[in-house]
Write a protein that binds this DNA or RNA. Structure first.
Length: 502
RNA sequence: GGCGCGUUCGUCCAGAGGCCUAGGACGCCGGCCUCUCACGUCGGCAACACGGGUUCGAAUCCCGUACGCGCUACCA
């Protein structure tokens, strides 16, 4: 009943309250901060969850607070320990470390049930004997009649002793929370004030007839038990927050601060989902995206340091982070920019670091190449995601299996292409085997023949790489070595003469 | 349907009444570099959803409309 009078007070003294809140907004916090990330292990850690975790982490670290983890595994049918492992692994991969041991929500079930019973005893909740099937049917019919279904409080009018007797007799029942009169204003750290009239809410079930507590109860109970001071979560929870606040009040618990971060959308502006392609952190790892790149990119979706910085270390992000600077607007996930950002991080690695990161993506044959490292600086600026390496660098390690048709058509227009290859090969035989020496040999030949160097270079490139484009031809030659170069040129000449081109 | 939230270049952000002829980044287009591709570099195109207010002055404040998203479960 205190909730009711509070609500009225809020309504009447609106102006002073606003001033108070603004003060609160700028101070960011005054007590030690405890935040949490609470994924449910029903799937891999997805992009949206990762960003929510990041924001929680940044806030906690910025405020010298604690960042806790809670695994919401109460949906036993859909949850699995494997998914929990996967989520933890992904968080670590992203460099987001947490404090203490992860809490399992399922462990707190008995307490959640107890709280529901307590609310029942105190008359803040009441048993509902209505048939769930009937309720569901009415809810479905509602829209057709132009009405919205809201629980009609049939069971609220059952006298307490009668209700007690029916429960005692074992009649199946759920427990519903009784929504008090009034309205609730939530001072969201990101959205600002959000007010909801209690008349819009209905007496929601807190304890199902099978005796299991509902999500709204579990979050509230666990957040309180974990002494969470700031609930930072996806904006899909915004509408349910008033219900949760009512629960806090009913329990006589302090209400934490809330901050609802906007959603991440796909290119079609719909909520990001599997339809949009890769949506889990693990998939990006498998594509050869660097964790620091994904993390940086995610941070910039819905947040900015307030200036033009884009490439930032975790420490820089932490230093600049505040909830007030988080956007209210949902953001489209742009793969292209992620790729660019990944390339930025890739380019900042040393050759040794780069190779180590690239190893899982090297094509077959690369292992046999041993000390052959000349290809590395050649490929580095040419891949944005390491996974591109598999195809793009194949010719460094294996003779081309095929010649790109478009390149053949353009650079090997007829049998004379084979003669060009032979001519170049001969002039190469007496050249110094390094990029400069090879280049001057080929250019010398071009000049002698009165043709442009490109007329010789392009046919040779196709012979060596099977492709119309590659890193500088002479660097490629130097890296490949004379033996391989000659072998490939001769194979190509033979292929051309066999008439395969036509 | 109701309620809530949102709306600055194609995309991500900057902008908290005059500093905005709206800034940066990705992408795109063009130049340079050059044997192709990529990198790099230089330049260009490109936005305040709409309509009313308030104000000497609005991208910034207020109201309405449109559109989008979310919630509205004995799911989490």
């Amino acid at each position: 009943m205190t909730g009711k009078s509070n609500a009225i007070v809020i309504g009447f003294f609106f102006c002073p309250l606003v001033q108070f809140r603004e003060f609160d907004m700028t101070s960011e916090t005054s007590t030690p901060v405890v935040v949490r990330f609470a994924p449910s292990p029903t799937g891999y850690l997805h992009i949206g969850g990762a960003r929510t975790a990041l924001f929680n982490w940044l806030f906690a670290r910025r405020q010298d607070g604690r960042f806790l983890l809670r695994i919401e595994d109460t949906d036993t049918a859909r949850s699995s320990p494997e998914m929990t492992d996967n989520i933890l692994t992904s968080l670590k991969w992203l460099g987001l470390d947490w404090d203490g041991e992860p809490v399992l929500q399922s462990a707190n079930r008995p307490e959640h049930v107890r709280l529901c019973r307590d609310l029942l005893d105190r008359g803040l909740a009441y048993p509902c004997f209505c048939d769930p099937e009937e309720q569901r049917r009415r809810r479905e019919e509602g829209p057709q009649a132009g009405m919205v279904y809201k629980y009609d409080r049939t069971c609220l009018s059952i006298p307490r002793d009668e209700a007690a007797a029916r429960m005692k007799a074992g009649e199946p029942h759920a427990v519903r929370f009784r929504i008090p009169d009034g309205r609730t204003t939530l001072a969201d750290r990101i959205r600002g004030d959000v007010t909801v009239e209690h008349a819009e809410l209905d007496d929601f079930v807190i304890l199902r007839s099978d005796g299991t507590p509902v999500y709204q109860v579990s979050v509230v109970a666990d957040d309180h038990a974990m002494a969470i001071t700031h609930v930072i979560r996806g904006d899909d929870h915004l509408s349910n927050t008033p219900k949760q606040i009512l629960l806090y009040r009913a329990m006589n618990w302090p209400v934490p601060e809330f901050a609802h971060v906007p959603m991440i959308l796909g290119p079609d502006k719909k909520r990001l989902s599997k339809r949009h392609g890769a949506t889990s952190v693990g998939e990006y790892e498998r594509q050869g995206v660097r964790p620091e790149a994904l993390r940086n990119f995610l941070a910039l979706l819905g947040w900015s340091p307030g200036d033009d910085r884009e490439i930032m270390t975790l420490a820089e992000m932490t230093e600049a982070f505040s909830l007030a600077s988080v956007s209210k607007k949902s953001a489209v996930f742009d793969e292209t920019k992620l790729a660019w950002m990944n390339a930025q991080y890739l380019s900042r690695l040393t050759d040794e670091e780069w190779l180590k990161a690239a190893e899982p993506f090297l094509p077959v044959g690369a292992a046999d190449a041993g000390g052959l490292k000349g290809w590395i600086p050649l490929m580095r600026p040419r891949v944005q995601k390491l996974s591109e390496l598999t195809g793009a660098s194949a010719y460094f390690f294996n003779d081309p299996e095929a010649y790109e048709p478009a390149a053949v058509a353009k650079h090997w227009p007829g049998p004379q292409a084979a003669d060009i290859l032979d001519g170049v090969r001969d002039c190469l035989k007496v050249a110094d085997w390094n990029a400069a020496g090879l280049e001057s040999a080929v250019r010398g030949l071009a000049e002698k023949r009165g043709v442009k160097a490109g007329a010789l270079i392009h046919p040779v490139r196709v012979a060596l790489t099977g492709s119309g484009s590659s890193p500088g031809l002479f660097e490629v030659m130097e890296t490949l070595g004379a033996e391989t170069v000659f072998r490939r040129m001769e194979r190509a000449a033979a292929w051309i003469r066999s008439g395969a081109a036509v």
